[in-house]
Computed example of a mutant assay.
Amino acid sequence: MSRPTENDAISLADLSATHRDLLWILSQAGPSESGLLHHALTDYYTDRIDQTRVRDSLEELIEHDLVTKQAHDTTEYRLTESGRRALAARQAWQAGTHNVSGGHE
């Protein structure tokens, strides 16, 4: 699979809440192992979340070039620059500071 270009950048609106929450956790915690990410999600969600679902979601984020995976003694996930930009754009949208053109009054 080829890497996405900036023009192909995915909007976080196209991702599931789990994907967005994983990105948010990584932005706050920094590079993390999947077990720590799973623990953070289970502390937040009221429904049970499976470890396999977390790993699959992380792999999908890697495919979108929002997260990278580095394996040393353990496997560590971290945000890419694209991931940071996507989170910043989402935060701007949530804060109402995004640039809207062609909107209705």
Rank of each mutant, 00 (worst) to 15 (best):
L36R: 12
Q94K: 08
S27V: 10
S57W: 04
Y77H: 10
T42C: 08
L26K: 04
A95E: 07
Q70L: 13
D65I: 07
L41K: 07
H19Q: 08
R85Y: 07
M1H: 06
S57P: 04
Y45I: 03
R84D: 02
L61C: 01
D56P: 00
N99P: 01
D47I: 13
A13V: 11
H72P: 03
T74W: 10
N99W: 03
L66N: 04
Q70V: 13
T18E: 05
L15W: 00
G102H: 03
G35H: 11
E81F: 12
G83C: 11
L79T: 01
P31D: 06
T52V: 11
D47V: 13
D47G: 09
G30D: 04
Q70M: 09
A9H: 09
R48W: 15
A40S: 15
R85H: 06
E63A: 14
L79F: 05
A29I: 01
T97C: 04
L36E: 14
Q91W: 14
W93Q: 09
H72Q: 14
T68F: 06
A89F: 08
A17N: 06
E105C: 00
T46P: 03
G83P: 08
T52C: 02
A71P: 09
E105K: 03
A86Q: 07
V100D: 13
R55D: 15
A95N: 08
L36I: 07
E76I: 15
S27K: 14
Y77I: 02
V54D: 06
S16V: 08
G96E: 05
Q70G: 14
A88M: 06
A13K: 13
T80I: 05
A13I: 12
S34A: 13
L22K: 05
L61Q: 01
I10C: 05
D21N: 11
L87Q: 05
L36D: 14
E59N: 15
D73M: 14
I49A: 10
S16W: 05
L58A: 02
R48H: 15
M1P: 03
A29N: 05
A86C: 08
V100W: 03
T68H: 09
H104F: 00
D43I: 00
N99A: 05
R3S: 08
G30R: 04
T46L: 12
G35R: 12
S82R: 12
T74A: 12
E6S: 11
Q51M: 09
R55N: 15
D47E: 15
G83I: 10
L15Y: 00
E60L: 14
A17F: 10
H98V: 00
A9T: 08
L23G: 01
E60R: 15
L41H: 07
D73V: 13
D43F: 02
L37T: 04
A92W: 04
M1F: 06
L41R: 11
E6G: 02
D47W: 10
E59F: 11
V54M: 06
T68S: 11
Q94P: 01
G102R: 06
T68M: 08
D14I: 00
Q91G: 11
G96C: 03
